[in-house]
Design a protein around this nucleic acid. Structure first.
Lengths: 204, 204
DNA sequence: GTCTATAACTCGATAGAC
DNA sequence: GTCTATCGAGTTATAGAC
């Protein structure tokens, strides 16, 4: 059931609070005091459970990145026909990001700052493989069902159109004069529109 | 000529250093000491010229945002035919971002953190207008040259495919196993490919 | 204008009582 | 496990000599 505080263990309360504060302010901008306040506990308890700010951050970051990347991996390696794959990916991925709209900026922002080994941290050493999807696209090109298409650019375009609108939300809202509800409605529409746009572009 | 330090006034040295440090580390992560070191001057001089870290940051942020937004505005209001407009925008915008690859993440990141009035700060009260481009698209739809197309989504798609690859660079490099040179080459290719992709998608 | 020195403050982390 | 109190490092900002 929905017990926002009562039935939650202290550790869970800390994790929920840390997620909120880190995503909102980033590693450098977040304060341990903010997290303690948000969790309704004392600052010292944070150190009792997670030793340091850095350690706590890594837990949150791994969880966040683990929500964004495996979905891409699974679509890159699934066995669906190409057009179905595109439809499923755009629909599902936009849905995920609608429910976690601040995740992409948080993860990409920290990835750009930390120069070290994400691959280890996030995937445990094995990054996603795109060769299967690339081969599938080449096959469709040879069959003549789609135009000559660069698999790499196609994947970049697909991911860009799913994720960017949420990162660029304030910019888009200014340019298009959208309030919260209008923006939300546009993102809902995109679940169908993006795959149509992509397929229209590559099919002969 | 290219006098990186000698002929530069102290103020210019500070601005260049501040731009570099703020873009790399963000407002919260940057230290006045870092900026002073980068500029080859003393910490106290920063306050002599710009009073506070916050004030210095605002100068850098305005300049950075002023580099990204007016370009969009100018394409939204220019008088070119639709397809030429799309070609020119994608080509020019990607070129700008290739030369300033960290600008988009910096600007969008800070826009998502500061909840206040950007429109004032960046545009002086008048945000870009997209009605002209929207009308142009509607006109082409009626003429039958392009499919029924949502102007809003088309603009979002266009901006997404130009900007996102630079924000998501580390993610893309992991998924596609690209080194620096390969990534750079892909971005060069995109200057032509993105407009082709868009036009293929909307033309009948 | 530019520097050194330092004040004033913030924040992560720990000690120690309960 | 949880709290209060506090230390010590690091940061912005200023005072004041040159």
């Amino acid at each position: 059931m929905v017990n926002k505080n009562k039935d939650q263990s202290t550790e869970e309360k800390i994790l929920a609070a840390a997620k909120k504060v880190f995503i909102e302010k980033g590693m450098a901008g977040a304060r341990m005091q903010d997290i303690a306040d948000e969790a309704g506990i004392n600052k010292a308890l944070l150190h009792y459970y997670f030793r340091s700010k850095e350690k706590l951050f890594q837990v949150i970051f791994k969880a966040a990145a683990g929500n964004l990347f495996p979905r891409i991996q699974s679509i890159l390696t699934s066995n669906l026909p190409l057009f179905d794959k595109i439809e499923q990916f755009t629909n599902d991925y936009i849905e995920i990001v609608i429910e976690n709209p601040y995740l992409p900026l948080f993860v990409l922002n920290e990835m750009n700052k930390q120069r070290d080994n994400f691959i280890e941290k996030i995937f445990g050493g094995k990054p996603p493989e795109m060769h299967l999807l690339a081969a599938q696209i080449e096959k469709e090109v040879k069959k003549g069902t789609i135009k000559k298409t660069s698999p790499g650019h196609l994947i970049i375009n697909m991911i860009s159109m799913c994720i960017f609108p949420f990162i660029g939300k304030p910019m888009i809202q200014i340019i298009m004069q959208l309030d919260e509800l209008q923006f939300r409605n546009m993102m809902e529409q995109r679940k169908k529109l993006v795959s149509t746009f992509i397929i229209d572009s590559i099919k002969k």
